[in-house]
Amino acid sequence: MAIVAKKIGKAIGTPPVRILTDINLKIDDGEFVALTGRSGSGKSTLLYILSSLDSPSEGSVEVAGHDLGKMADPELYKFRNEKMGFVFQFHYLISELTAIENVLLPAVKNRRQIERRAYAESLLEQFGLGDKIHRLPRQLSGGEQQRLAIARALVMQPKYLFADEPTGSLDSANGDIVMNIIRDANKNFGTTVIMVTHDPDFAATANRAINLVDGRIS
């Protein structure tokens, strides 16, 4: 099993507000899972818990056999860097860096930027940004910026791609392009994709859709 969540619960704030309750799920390697639900249903929170960016109030998450709650910080950071990629609703590109520098940022952490350079360029070429690798994010359109963010998420060839409404800030044409890229990553590289989406059409293209209602899997 790639990702196993056992009895996940999450409450935040004082007094505590319950967001997730008793979530149990298993996601296989190479699966494409869509997390759906209405606003406030807890799908983004579940995504961040599954991806180690947030910790559950109860329960545990295992990714590739590692209990995320028991991993030491350095081990977790390394795991996140090498095995996980993130795409957010907003691209979160670093405005001071060029397109290629942004893509190579995960590789810089372990001084692997030279090694990953060719792959980063091929990704940008594949995403239609081959002639814009030296441009700054502000010199790119919204769709291009999000494609750049996906290239950055994939540059380390992660086993898991976590996407939080990656098409949320895009028009339908750019949304389709981004979804195709994510699907291709899942199909061609065997990347396990867990994606939060509001869009039922995009959810329908996933292998499996997990719908959340009031913090529970319905």
């Binding site: 991806s51 960016l53 910080d73 350095p74 950071y77 390394k78 795991f79 996140r80 860097n81 090498e82 996980m84 993130f86 957010f88 907003f90 979160y92 590109l93 670093i94 940022l105 995960p106 952490k109």
Partner: peptide
């Protein structure tokens, strides 16, 4: 935002 994305990439505290 930059801090958030760097941390999600595995950059440590």
């Amino acid at each position: 935002r930059d801090i958030a994305i760097l941390r999600s990439m595995g950059y440590s505290t």
